[in-house]
């Protein structure tokens, strides 16, 4: 497995898209520093950039890469390698490279902006998002042999998690604002890893004070250590479950 991961990771690093991604993260990161100065503003801006960019890059790039390397996968399959080994190699190398680029691309601006523990928390959350959305991309790629279909559905996932979900939560809160639904909203946020991570990072900043009564409920959970731990565990589950399902599907798939 190590040899395949090594080969795929090297192949990925040669990819120009990866380099452009790194460049994009640097340009936005350092650009924001020069525009907005230091501190929490930068952290929040980088948080928003992560929310928009990480899922999209992970979904689109991983799925294209998987489809492009399909023949290679078949070639390796003729060797005595278990199917799970092949898929784990793909997942690991994509995760290593994309997460590495993310950490390097945002870590450097964060370091210069002087963000402390909150910056590290953002990087940790962002890395978990990488793992989650690469897993979802592989799931889609295995589910749909038709490339257009796989691509379409992975974009749908992106739109759902980035835009639609928030819209639905907002609709819920707007319609039921006379009822005590703060707890419910907290549980609903578990259903979207992006929201979960966003709230986790937001709550560590002063922006938390702007969130009103719902914020107070969130404050209880997301600032305590057990609460942070719980969120990280939930994010890990979000990464593990789609990936283990994709292994199961891959084992049964006609290649």
């Amino acid at each position: 497995m190590g040899k395949i991961i090594q080969f795929l990771a090297t192949d990925l690093f040669k990819n120009k898209t990866i380099f452009l991604y790194l460049l994009f993260l640097w340009v936005t990161g350092f650009g924001l520093i020069s525009l907005q100065g230091q501190g929490e503003k930068i952290l929040l801006a980088l948080l928003n950039i992560s929310i928009l960019v990480v899922p999209m890059i992970c979904l689109v790039f991983s799925i294209i890469y998987f489809y492009n390397m399909y023949e290679f996968l078949l070639l390796l399959h003729a060797q005595p390698l278990a199917r799970s080994t092949l898929l784990i190699s793909f997942y690991t190398s994509l995760s290593l490279v994309l997460t590495g680029v993310y950490l390097f691309g945002l870590g450097l601006p964060l370091y210069f902006s002087g963000a402390g523990g909150e910056g590290l928390l953002l990087l940790l959350t962002g890395s978990l998002w990488n793992l989650i959305f690469i897993g979802l991309a592989l799931l889609m790629a295995i589910w749909a042999s038709d490339r257009t279909k796989g691509m379409g559905f992975s974009l749908l996932i992106w739109v759902y998690f980035v835009l639609l979900f928030d819209g639905l939560v907002l609709l819920l809160m707007y319609n039921f604002n006379e009822y005590p639904i703060e707890k419910l909203v907290l549980y609903i946020s578990f259903l979207n890893p992006l929201d979960l991570g966003r709230i986790l990072v937001l709550m560590q900043t002063d922006a938390a004070a702007l969130m009103g009564y719902t914020g107070a409920v969130f404050q209880q959970v997301f600032t305590e250590n057990w609460g942070k731990g719980l969120v990280l565990v939930l994010l890990l589950l979000w990464a593990l479950i789609p990936f283990s399902v994709s292994i199961r599907w891959f084992n049964k798939k006609d290649l």
Binding site: L74, D254, L255
Partner: peptide, 8 residues
Amino acid sequence: KCLLGLNT
């Protein structure tokens, strides 16, 4: 493909 395990 069945012999090779490509088809399950």
